[in-house]
Amino acid sequence: MINTVWLFLIVTGIVVAAVRGTMGDVSAGIMTGVSSSVELFLGLMGIMALWTGVMRVAEKSGLVEALSRGIRPVLGLLFPDIPKNHPAMGAVVMNMAANMLGLGNAATPIGINAIKELQKLNPRPARATNAMCTFLVLNTSSVQIIPATVIGLRAAAGSINPTEIIGTAFLATTISTLAGIVAVKTLQRLY
């Protein structure tokens, strides 16, 4: 999919430039784009290092696990099909906690572990269960509390107050997650 989109941007741009006679601008645009990626990367690197450092401490101190225990009762309501002490529940909870803390690199392996556990409860192995669908929608709707990467990008772009979007992003992500939950629970009867 991304291959098509990427190629579409390049080819359409060059075709439009040929028609409109803006090919000189396009040459300049390529150089600007490429060098700005390096500038961005330099700004991003510091912030990424900061957050992965802090989060590693949170992992080692057991904070991530403590948070897991906190959200377990809420997640029980969302996943009525998972038996209470099944390992799938633990993995789902850990994945959610890692997502909330923005530990993307940790969340994916834990999430894959969770879906493997969910698959053990699946009577029809090629077909997604309700629990799997709910789990996937939670993962695609972002439940991150601190969007560290965007903050880094804002800082790199010279924002006066890079963190001011934490509040708005939190509100927006809550709304999108709620909408996703309503959709997944409503639609599960139709499919």
């Binding site: 941007l9 741009g13 803006t22 396009v26 390529i30 784009g33 490429v34």
Partner: peptide, 14 residues
């Protein structure tokens, strides 16, 4: 990769 592609797409007027 992406900034190069967007650079083309934007500067061409597309």
């Amino acid at each position: 990769a992406i900034l190069m592609a967007i650079g083309i797409f934007r500067s061409s007027g597309a």
